[in-house]
Computed example of a mutant assay.
Amino acid sequence: MLYDEPGSGGAPLLWGPGFALAGFLLELALGGPTHVVAWAVIGVGLFLASALWVYARRRFLSVRVTDMVLWQGREALPVERIAEVRDGDPPARAKPLGGGYTVPRKYQEVPLTLDDGRAVLAWARDAEALRAALRRALDAWENRRHE
């Protein structure tokens, strides 16, 4: 693995149960009636909602680079199809990888030229690290090809 950006960590899974526990403890501290079942249902409901959110982010916003494949969300691009990793501004009308219409918000663009001459946009939170990983993958592919 040359680059791995999972899209989301596991910490958001604890937010819902943590809020529910805080609500229960606040009721307990105030000395009023406590609603154990209600707080448990709220905690489970918030956990399930955040689990769906984490799953979606991991599926659609993950970025991985191996010496063979660039994964952008749901889309896999073999490294052998990449002709050039470009610096600078992306060309007009370059299609983002990953199946979306635009590069995800808060992600930086990395312009690529494919072997058929088309320009596409890879994306990551750290564009320089992705660019470096893609160049290492291209070097590894070139070395394998010439062996």
Rank of each mutant, 00 (worst) to 15 (best):
Y3T: 00
D4Y: 13
G7N: 10
G7K: 06
S8M: 11
G9A: 04
P12F: 15
P12Y: 09
L13A: 05
P17Q: 07
P17C: 06
G18R: 12
G18I: 12
G18Y: 11
A20L: 10
A20N: 02
A20H: 03
L21G: 10
F24Y: 15
F24D: 06
F24R: 06
L25A: 10
L26T: 15
E27L: 13
E27T: 09
L28H: 11
A29V: 09
A29P: 10
L30I: 04
G31F: 08
G31I: 13
P33K: 15
P33W: 15
P33N: 14
W39G: 04
V41A: 07
I42S: 05
I42L: 13
V44S: 02
G45I: 03
G45A: 06
F47C: 05
L48R: 13
L48F: 10
A49T: 07
S50P: 10
A51H: 03
A51C: 07
W53P: 09
W53M: 09
V54S: 10
V54F: 14
Y55V: 05
A56T: 06
A56K: 05
R58M: 01
R59G: 13
F60T: 15
L61R: 15
L61W: 12
V63T: 05
R64M: 05
R64Q: 09
R64F: 01
T66D: 15
D67F: 12
D67T: 13
M68D: 14
M68P: 12
L70T: 12
L70A: 06
L70D: 07
W71I: 13
Q72Y: 04
R74T: 11
E75A: 14
A76Q: 14
L77F: 01
E80F: 06
I82F: 05
E84N: 09
D87Q: 02
D87T: 03
G88V: 02
G88D: 04
G88Q: 05
D89Y: 06
P91Y: 04
L97M: 00
G98I: 08
G98Y: 02
G99A: 11
T102S: 15
V103F: 04
V103G: 08
P104E: 14
E109F: 03
P111C: 11
P111L: 03
L114M: 02
D115I: 04
D116C: 00
D116W: 04
G117C: 09
R118P: 02
V120W: 00
V120P: 01
L121A: 04
L121R: 08
A122R: 01
A122P: 01
W123M: 01
W123G: 01
W123S: 03
A124K: 01
A127K: 12
A129R: 09
L130F: 01
L130V: 00
R131I: 00
R131V: 00
R131G: 00
A132F: 03
A133K: 00
A133N: 03
L134M: 04
R135L: 06
R136S: 06
R136I: 02
R136V: 03
A137N: 01
A137F: 00
L138H: 04
L138I: 15
D139M: 14
W141G: 12
N143M: 12
R144D: 12
R144G: 12
R144Y: 07
E147T: 02
